[in-house]
Design a protein around this nucleic acid. Structure first.
Length: 431
RNA sequence: GUGGCCGUAGCUCAGUUGGUCAGAGCGCCGGGUUGUGAUCCCGGAGGCCGCGGGUUCGAACCCCGUCGGUCACCCCA
């Protein structure tokens, strides 16, 4: 393989986001920020790598993410670190380290790394938006978090998605339920698929969300966690459902919903897009993790949060034909066939006055410069040819919409463009 | 990590049973006489057919490997 093909290619499972797609990302981030900050969540940045123990303890040694998907490495000082595979554990680590006042409500936007076989909607570096709320065990906080995700998706225009929720109980009711489930599955051990027959004792919950027909049949009548919660968890879950109903957030109860991380307790939920053909249709998910802060060395502190995948959200938007973002168009484009001084100085003057301006380079023909102006989507073209240069003027011509070309003295150009923009409809494409 | 499919110009793709098969559309660049774009017309640049090896007189077309993509599984955003 030549050096060229070896180097000029993003690593497998990673991808570049260039303009104009990056404009969509920016918009998505901005919308998310406004959405969650309105609910009191503040932005937090944490390192993209952490001591590997942060993930091992929180997510769980037995999980696939920790067991076989982490980008783990040793730094020059001999520390064992890992690129973050998800956003919650690092945020909780930051909470434990700084102990901000409760309740602590924070949001994040971060890359996440998992060594998996790439396919559409599944990348080795993908990007997540999420929130975490620490402190209250109040079920209304669960409702707030879930509803925040739901309304965010809808604000993008997404409609073809479903929300599934379940309760994973807590320390006081999970052992008994696991025993019940294990006993039930043990009686049907022969019906389970190979994999889950082997994992029955280690993690019986996994069999519940197995997609193979054998397992599905065997688990169809299995006891659901929601029916075997302790009184406290049962009341909590009831309050959550009541709140979602009141907020008119559609959901379905799914006792098969088992999330992959060990830290989840009580409420868990997942959003899946029905518009995505791929098996990678999960666009967001999360849950309560009342024991995680302690696992990472902090005081007993309940918490809940969600994470959503930017790439998958955008794929879902494409599939539904929503959330198209128009790239920015410059206010003015300077066409200069009189040497280039005016293109250089006029764009600078316009930018200094707070307007956006662009130009062509390399002394191209007038036709070429006009083509460039058109492609840029500029609202106005400022023309400086030999005539204007000689008379100290600039011709101002609307590129979209109606209006005649006019000529103004160079000294008045900035003001003239400012006035012209003010009178131009905000949406040029509407013309 | 396991298995199926795929990999031709910037993009979307054609390329008959291996022998003018290196092409089209879009995009890009230039031109259509004297300074005005998005339409139209003409012309041009651009690809060692992912990469490496093999079979053959000869391979984009066959075989092997490798890299990448894609689909399913696993798991998840």
């Amino acid at each position: 393989m030549s050096d060229k093909t070896l180097v000029a290619r993003a690593p497998s499972g990673t991808h570049d986001v260039l303009w104009p797609e990056s404009t969509r990302w920016e918009s998505l981030l901005a919308l998310f920020a406004v959405h969650v900050e309105r609910a009191g969540y503040g932005l937090a940045h944490t390192p993209i790598f952490e001591d590997v123990k942060v993930f091992r303890r929180g997510i769980g040694e037995g999980s696939d993410v920790v067991g076989k998907e982490m980008y783990e490495f040793e730094d020059r000082g001999g520390r064992t670190l890992a690129l973050r595979p998800e956003g919650t554990a690092p945020m909780v680590r930051a909470f434990v380290q700084h102990r901000p006042p409760l309740p602590w409500k924070a949001w994040y936007a971060t890359p996440a790394f998992r060594y998996e076989r790439p396919q559409a909607g599944r990348y080795r570096q993908h990007h997540q938006l999420g929130v975490e709320a620490l402190g209250p065990s109040d079920a209304d906080l669960d409702v707030e978090v879930v509803a925040l995700a739901d309304t965010f998706f809808r604000s993008l225009g997404l409609a073809a998605f479903t929300l599934r929720i379940n309760s994973m109980g807590d320390d006081s009711c999970r052992p008994a339920y696991l025993e019940l489930l294990t006993a039930y599955l043990a009686e049907r051990r022969d019906q389970l698929c190979d994999e889950h027959r082997d994992r029955l004792e280690a993690n019986p919950l996994r069999a519940l969300d197995c997609k193979r027909d054998a397992c599905r049949a065997a688990t169809d009548g299995a006891p659901g966690f929601a029916e075997h919660l302790c009184d406290e968890c049962d009341a909590h879950f009831a309050r959550v459902r009541q709140g979602l109903d009141a907020q008119q957030v559609p959901y379905v109860l799914d006792h098969r919903l088992v999330r992959g991380f060990d830290y989840y307790t009580r409420t868990t939920f997942e959003f899946a897009s029905a518009a995505l053909e791929s098996a990678q249709n999960g666009i967001g998910g999360g849950g309560r993790y009342d024991g995680l802060v302690e696992m990472l060395g902090g005081p007993p502190t309940p918490g809940i949060g969600f994470g959503m995948g930017i790439e998958r959200i955008l794929l879902a938007c494409d599939a539904e034909g929503v959330f198209a973002v128009d790239p920015a168009r410059p206010d003015a484009f300077v066409v200069d066939t009189a040497g280039g001084d005016h293109a250089r100085d006029l764009t600078a003057a316009l930018r200094a006055a707070g307007m956006s301006a662009d130009r062509a380079y390399d002394d191209r023909s007038m036709k070429a410069q006009f083509k460039a102006a058109d492609k840029s989507g500029a609202a106005w073209v400022l023309i400086v040819g030999p005539d204007e240069a000689a008379s100290g003027t600039v011709s101002l011509r609307p590129l979209r919409g109606t209006g005649d070309q006019s000529t103004v003295p160079v000294a008045e150009v900035v003001d003239a463009v400012r006035a012209a923009i003010r009178d131009t409809p905000a949406d040029p494409s509407a013309l």
